[in-house]
Amino acid sequence: MAEIFVLAEHREGELREITFEMLGAAKYLGKDMGATVTAVLLGHDVDTYAEKLGSYADTVLVVDDPKLDYFNAEIYQKVLSKLISDKNPVVTLIGHTAFGMDLAPALAVELGLPLATDCIGLEVDGGKLFVTRQIYSGKVNAKVSLKGDQYMVTIRSAAFPVEEGTLSGEIVKEAVAIEDVPYRKFIGYEEAPAGEVDITQADYIIGIGRAIGDPENIPMVEELAEALGGVLACSRPVVDKNWLPKDRQVGSSGKIVKPKLYLALGISGAFQHVAGMKDSGLIVAINKDPKAPIFNVADYGIVNDLFKIVPVLKEKITELKG
């Protein structure tokens, strides 16, 4: 029976969410293609991962080797090209992540496989695979076909939901000889430099506006920022009043930020401010004024007093993050 490969992604002792999202996508793809789902796990001492993956895949293919302890695109490529050549999976799914982006194109070139990256939709029609990917910064969806009968696809994070794991897949260990890799050496992980906050590098930003009113209100929003794992930024009046340092200002004369989430609290959405944050991923605004222009750039909004929303929002977020 045909097989779909899903490359399990793990880092620092944890299987990453994208793995389960891909396994969910693979389940449906498998039904449409009449294929089973194989989770491919490369690592060292990864039995617990293998077990967990067993609930989501028909088979878990494990290559355990000290050289696979850390992600190294080159070594991964060697092992995967061997596995794919041997087993000929009809589709190989890899995360469109920092790992996947460093791996998939080279692997596809080596194997001569068609590769579609950063996909948010998978479809089978007449036995052929079609993917949907976004182009022009998400303004257009492209339906792309892949030639031949064996494919490689990378999947965007959070594009597919995680399904409940109800299977009890068989764990198969495979030995792949890894010769020394001359080229590339993993040295280590490094946390981004600490110290002064660089809001341009933050994924989650809470922007506070003049409506914060008093520096004594800042700890309250700081707690919300902590709950989100984000940082505080602000509009210019907040800096003018010395409530936050200059390097936190977003806007035409401050910093240009493009976080995944920008939560604007009591910011009217002045042009100069919007210029600094309009390209953020998800924009949420909380403002008392339903006509505040910030709602024209926001994806979601709450028309209410920020001081009423912030404490409950913090609770809900903490709850959901578990």
């Binding site: 590339r184 050496k185 993993f186 490094e190 946390e191 981004a192 590098q201 994924d203």
Partner: peptide, 15 residues
């Protein structure tokens, strides 16, 4: 230094 998700970086060396 490669940027990974969540503020982590992978440091590597190559020829």
């Amino acid at each position: 230094k490669r940027e990974l998700e969540g503020g982590l970086m992978e440091v590597l060396e190559m020829d």
